[in-house]
């Protein structure tokens, strides 16, 4: 057990992170775009946990705990915003929110 190189885990998390970022960029549905933020956060958590084990240090794991709490709060606010926007426009397409420009 436990013989895999650290870099494998880092590469996995990097892949997930970039996938999340691209999803945020490319998906027009606000809820899905927001889900992609969660994907990014998960990639970060994976990095923290891998390093935590590498350093045999709890800090990383505690950080993950905090990130999950923050993600919960962000999810609450973010979904509330999406609901609020839906009430105004009857749509959650990100690219239709263009009242503010220039």
């Amino acid at each position: 057990m436990l013989s895999l190189p650290l870099s494998w885990y880092l590469m996995l998390s990097a892949t997930l992170f970039v996938m999340g970022a691209l999803g945020l960029l490319l998906r027009r549905n606000a809820i899905v775009a927001f889900m992609c933020v969660e994907v990014m956060l998960n990639a970060v958590n994976l990095t923290f946990i891998a390093f935590s084990k590498y350093h045999q240090d709890y800090t990383g794991q505690v950080f993950v705990f905090m990130v999950i709490a923050v993600a919960a709060a962000e999810a609450g606010i973010g979904l509330a915003m999406i609901v609020n926007m839906f009430r105004h426009k009857h749509s959650v397409q990100v690219d239709e929110a263009t009242l503010l420009r220039h």
Partner: peptide, 20 residues
Amino acid sequence: GSVLRVVQNGQVQRYVAFVF
């Protein structure tokens, strides 16, 4: 205006793309 129409066009995903 012509520059801003490209950059500051109100689409948040374009903003994210520029940050990226």
